[in-house]
């Protein structure tokens, strides 16, 4: 039995560590007939170093948030744009298709064996005080993860506060920021319920985070060809992307019901505000499309088909 090493980050209770890796390990064991398994090691290096860790063979598998390596991964910004509908399961499956057919040719992950491309659900505002609407965002100090999320809130007139995800709790509790944009399950994952109780929802999200799971190439090449074939056919790629997205949906749903149960204020963007938001989103979209096109990809076409795929898969899920 061969034991692969998964280098992971985020708190141990985070959905990635609590649900996603255990699922992957289970499938690895099943598909390889027990000849292959893996164990998770937390925080071997800071999140932006995780891909290098796997590239150099200090670990076999990892997951990364593309936004942490700004400038290195550009095509991922396309799927992070607001304006896409669908659950994390639907967008993750659609993401895999878009990546497999188009985005991979930008060559950003050529040094790795890519196991999955996945996304968290829509990110919303989590604020310390109840806003009167979108105009309240103007002048607010908000923590954003850079990339698409930061571009959107800056155009809304918010002031970007830059701290790592692990420092969000401190920053909010000390009042150094008025809120944060993060995906829903961060409310439990990073204890936002305590420090930013107000849930301010933007239909479709302010952005959607893009992630990938990667394997060291040599590790992959060293696996038996029949195991490789079965893994590729039965799990890696769309099935794994989709499964990870679904786990994120489940975690989001649990968080939403916990937030409701705790009686925290939950507010939705009004229709009029949604119009304003959409026009801002369109500006950011034009910028990102231009940036990704420079990588030799027909970005607008890929974005359109990604959104259409997501809608179709979502319809299929709801059926």
């Amino acid at each position: 039995e061969r034991v692969l090493t998964i280098a992971s980050w985020a708190p141990p209770t985070h959905v990635v560590n609590a649900k996603m890796w255990p699922l992957m390990i289970e499938r690895l064991e099943e598909i390889s007939g027990g000849t292959l398994t893996a164990k998770v090691k937390l925080n071997l290096a800071p999140p932006p170093a995780m891909s290098d860790l796997v590239l150099d063979g200090a670990a076999d598998i990892t997951f990364i948030f593309h936004g942490y390596n700004s400038g290195r991964f550009v095509t991922s910004e396309l799927v992070e744009l607001p304006g896409t509908s669908g659950s994390a399961e639907a967008t993750s499956a659609a993401y895999w298709r878009a990546w497999d057919k188009h985005l991979r040719f930008a060559g950003e992950q050529d040094e790795f064996k890519t196991l999955a491309m996945f996304m968290h659900g829509p990110a919303h505002f989590h604020l310390t005080e109840v806003p009167s609407g979108l105009e309240s965002i103007k002048g607010m100090k908000l923590r954003a993860p850079g990339g698409v999320g930061s571009a959107v809130i800056e155009r809304l007139g918010a002031i970007g506060i830059q701290v790592p995800a692990t420092k969000v709790y401190e920053t909010l509790s000390s009042g150094a920021a008025d809120g944060v944009i993060m995906n829903i399950d961060s409310r439990t994952g990073f204890k936002l319920d305590e420090v930013a109780p107000v849930f301010f929802e933007v239909e479709g999200g302010v952005f959607r985070g893009s992630f990938t799971a990667l394997m060291n190439r040599e590790t992959w090449d060293s696996l038996a060809p029949d195991v490789q074939n079965r893994l590729d056919a039965e799990f890696f790629g769309e099935p794994m992307s989709r499964a990870f997205g679904r786990l994120w949906d489940e975690s989001d749903a649990a968080t939403i019901s916990a937030t409701q149960k705790a009686g925290k204020p939950m507010i939705k963007l009004s229709d009029a505000d949604m119009v304003t938001f959409t026009s801002v989103a369109k500006e950011v979209e034009a910028e990102v499309v231009k940036k990704v096109s420079a990588k030799g990809i027909d970005a607008q076409a890929v974005l359109d088909s990604f959104r259409a795929d997501s809608l179709a898969i979502q319809a299929e899920i709801e059926k």
């Binding site: 290096a45 290098d52 701290v163």
Partner: peptide, 21 residues
Amino acid sequence: TSMPASLSLSARLVADGARDY
């Protein structure tokens, strides 16, 4: 793992640890 892997990880920790906000 291997010596190159271990050295590269350690070098990375040197570079990242010294600029942790």
